[in-house]
Amino acid sequence: MTNPIIQIKGLTKSYGGKRGIVDVSLDVAEGEVFGFLGPNGAGKTTTIRLLMALLHADAGSARIAGLDCWQQSVDVKRLIGYVPGEPSLDPNLTGGQILDYFAHLRGGVDRAYLKTLIERLDLDPNRKFRQYSTGNKRKVVLIQAFMHRPRLLILDEPTSGLDPLNQQEFDGMVQEARDEGRTAFLSSHVLSEVEKTCSRVGIIREGRLVKVGDIADLKDIKRYEITISFARPVPASAFAKLDGVVDVETLNNGSAVRLAMQGAADAVIKAAAQYPVVSLTSYEPSLEDVFLRFYESDGQAPREAAGVA
């Protein structure tokens, strides 16, 4: 990769005897939006906190814009806007005071742009931080991360707690950053969020980076299931060759089918309509389920379907 803004090589961190991350190596190009995916406890936050020099690595190195994240942390932080996973700020200051404080500490903040961000995310800056809802607390840290137009945004589960409208606004802000040639590195455990925002993803599991690739690779692993019950038995072959169907399993002596899907369900719905349908349930597997399916080789069947469409 030419011109990587983030270079991670063999990064390892443990907490006493407990695993943090193991031998993580990764490059992120300048100008891209990189999604860092993984289930809870996989090591996303540890990696991010190592980049932010909040943790000291046991081994390996992390560089941002060619600067060592630990040795040159102050210079590195001039380039960064950061949203922590669990925002905690002075509860006695108002949102506006917090933003003013961090604007002073950072320097170079365009006040007009700051006001725009406050309006875009519909934040009331006159309330004390302790009085904010979870979503509004998240807005404060998001604004402080974006307000100085940093070259690199490091965002740890940035939309957690935001309502759909504000999530959309956030997507727009990331998009604009990318359009201006800036870089975003965001962690998430929500596939759809990463799918919308990112151009490339890395997947971490149990402290190890298991996959890095374009967003198209994500489509390959994003399967879901449909279970259809009929008033009478139907042949599995009626669904096996349809577009989007990866696997078919018959249930209840043939009067139900469970379909492993990838892609559009249009063909399946049309085929099912040929028979007397009693119910149809759809289940989008959690990321954990995806990991289980793709990274375990013990041949276990996926979990029972849940959720009703």
Partner: peptide, 15 residues
């Protein structure tokens, strides 16, 4: 303990 140094230390201030 409460995580209040996290964002502060993400600014260009030395520890």
């Amino acid at each position: 303990d409460d995580g209040r140094l996290e964002v502060l230390l993400s600014t260009p201030q030395s520890r």
